[in-house]
């Protein structure tokens, strides 16, 4: 098995709900807590497994805002594991999930240097490295209904921009989505072979606005607006 996420950049609305749900679940999960520093002060900071950036692609008027959630990519060539001197970082052979054994980590930061995606953050209070667990304490929990055995970020996403599944299974939803929508990996040139894939925004035909005939009521409204403005 090769578990991972697919992020749909076409539908992501950038609401940060995935990051909040992640923080809520994991702050009492296996690598808990996700410490906050100065949360109500002028300079709030803290440990998050999920961060969302916002980019502008292209130039006006052909530009587009793309919201960009990032978490651990659970790479096949996980250099963070290779460089770890203590054996705290490991990649599970059965499902490819990369984890940090909190009882072994000495907090040297070396794994975070090796990660190109910024997936690892040091918790200054526990002195250990923390990262996305792919909600390992949810996805294998036989006590909850099967449809809920998914990472918290995937369950909470209101735009269904996140998918969870097995990339080794060619017919899984994630494999099909990557195949059909041209899913890609970030910074492939570094050869980390990340499991998580990103679906590019769909290309839509532009909606013509100038050539449309305007309705009479719209024309009236425009005229009224002009008059009132004067």
């Amino acid at each position: 098995m090769r578990l991972g996420l697919v992020i749909d950049l076409d539908t992501c609305v950038g609401c940060h709900a995935c990051a909040v749900a992640c923080k809520e679940w994991n702050t009492s999960g296996t690598t808990a807590p996700l410490t906050d520093y100065n949360p109500y002060g002028a300079e709030p900071s803290g440990v998050w497994f999920n961060r969302i950036r916002h980019y502008e692609i292209g130039e006006y008027p052909y530009n587009k805002t793309v919201n960009f959630p990032m978490s651990c990519m659970h790479c096949e060539n996980a250099e963070c594991v290779t460089v770890c001197p203590t054996g705290a970082s490991y990649k599970r052979s059965e499902d490819g999930i990369v984890l940090v054994d909190q009882s072994k980590c000495m907090g040297c930061n070396y794994c975070s240097w090796a990660c190109p995606y910024g997936a690892r953050e040091l918790d200054r209070v526990s002195g250990t490295m923390k990262k996305c667990t792919l909600c390992i304490d949810r996805i294998y929990d036989m006590e909850i209904p099967e449809e809920e055995r998914q990472p918290a970020c995937v369950l909470t996403c209101p735009a269904h921009a996140r998918m969870f599944g097995d990339f080794d299974d060619q017919e899984s939803a994630v494999s099909r989505a990557v195949r059909e929508r041209g899913g890609y990996q970030l910074m492939p040139e570094l050869n980390y072979d990340p499991s998580n894939h990103y679906l590019p925004p769909r290309v839509h035909a532009p909606i013509p606005v100038d050539s449309l005939r305007k309705k009479a009521t719209a024309k009236l409204k425009e005229w009224v607006n002009r008059v009132v403005e004067r």
Binding site: A19, E43, P44, V47, P116, L186
Partner: peptide, 30 residues
């Protein structure tokens, strides 16, 4: 790597609008 390969948008200008946090993180500090 460049911002293009980092985001996968290789054929147009890419510009960060917002990094999603108000103050620094472990990543910006390190």
């Amino acid at each position: 790597p460049t911002i293009h390969t980092a985001t996968g948008f290789n054929r147009s200008r890419v510009r960060l609008l917002d990094q999603g946090h108000t103050f620094g993180t472990f990543l910006t500090q390190e």
